[in-house]
């Protein structure tokens, strides 16, 4: 009995101690309410609006809008661009993170800063870089034209712009992870006789696989959703150089709201899917530190 009283008193004492680092009940509720209201107003409401607009004239009109040849071409182009840009950035990101986290070399700080450049530059500028590089007025432009190489207003330009914009995602995800893990695991593998390649495949890659997947996911979401940079280099040729985001804009400007929102809803679904996968990966992350795999 006495012990029970003591334990209750103890719990109360702990609760009082906790209270020192927490807001009062009213304050907490107010903060939560503000956060939830903000989320609902600025995130959930627009999302819901996209789907209601898309389905305003029924499922039939929705599917018909998606089956339209120009929409299908936009979806195809978006998938092609992502299918090229994401694997390449997976490789570049891995290489850059490896170099930065595991080696010392002159210019390392500069490289680390450069990786962030696509994040700090407006996407429109990112697109303009390629126009300046490959456009008709540039030094390279006429040469490319003579040799029949199309970069601007064609798929290669869109891929390049997307590559540039989505470059940081994988590298940024991996650098802190690899830095934290250091190089002793690799040294251990090497001292046990593993070759460099075996060490990479069996030790380094498994150590970062969840972070890598997460980075790829974000990279993919951005590759499919990028508007600004792609808009500058695409030329907006319907059925040829329109990606999904560009196509949405064109349809919207033509007051074809159902079709615009139908395509937009696909992008929204992609975003939701990315978030769900990200949440699942984070669960794995947390579980790993406890269970070891």
């Amino acid at each position: 009995m006495a012990a029970e009283v003591a334990s209750v008193e103890r719990a109360a004492a702990i609760a009082r101690v906790r209270a020192a680092t927490t807001e009062s009940r009213g304050g907490r509720l107010a903060l939560i309410a503000v956060a939830v209201a903000f989320l609902a107003l600025f995130l959930l409401l627009p999302l819901a609006a996209v789907f209601t607009e898309a389905l305003r004239q029924g499922l039939g009109a929705y599917l018909a809008a998606l089956a339209e040849p120009d929409a299908l071409a936009a979806i195809r182009l978006t998938l092609i661009v992502a299918a090229i840009a994401v694997p390449l950035n997976l490789l570049f990101g891995l290489a850059a993170a490896w170099a930065i986290a595991k080696f010392e070399f002159p210019g390392k700080a500069l490289l680390t800063t450069l990786i962030d450049l696509p994040f700090s530059v407006s996407p429109v500028i990112s697109g303009l870089i390629y126009v300046l590089l490959f456009g008709a007025g540039s030094a390279l432009g006429p040469w490319l034209q003579r040799h029949g190489v199309e970069i601007l207003f064609a798929t290669p330009g869109i891929v390049l712009a997307t590559l540039f914009v989505t470059f940081p995602f994988v590298a940024r995800e991996l650098i802190p992870l690899m830095q934290e893990q250091g190089t002793t695991d690799e040294e251990a593998a090497l001292s046990l006789g593993a070759s460099g390649w075996q060490t990479f495949l069996r030790v380094t890659l498994p150590n970062v696989k969840w972070g890598l997947l997460y980075g790829v996911l974000l990279c993919n979401a951005r590759a499919m959703g990028e508007f600004g940079a792609v808009s500058v280099v695409s030329g907006h040729i319907r059925g040829l150089t329109d990606t999904m985001p560009l196509h949405v804009e064109i349809l919207y400007n033509e007051y074809n709201f159902v079709a615009a929102f139908a395509v937009a809803s696909l992008l929204a679904l992609l975003a939701l899917l990315t978030l769900v996968l990200k949440a699942l990966l984070e669960l794995r992350f947390d579980g790993r530190s406890g269970a070891g795999h």
Partner: peptide, 28 residues
């Protein structure tokens, strides 16, 4: 280091966290 064939035990142990104890020992 591979050719020297030395057994090195690291201060932090450097066990491979994604492998079982058996896989760790069998790695070499």
């Amino acid at each position: 280091v591979q050719e020297r064939n030395v057994g090195f035990v690291f201060q932090s142990y450097a066990l491979f966290r994604h492998m079982t104890v058996l896989d760790n020992i069998a790695f070499g």
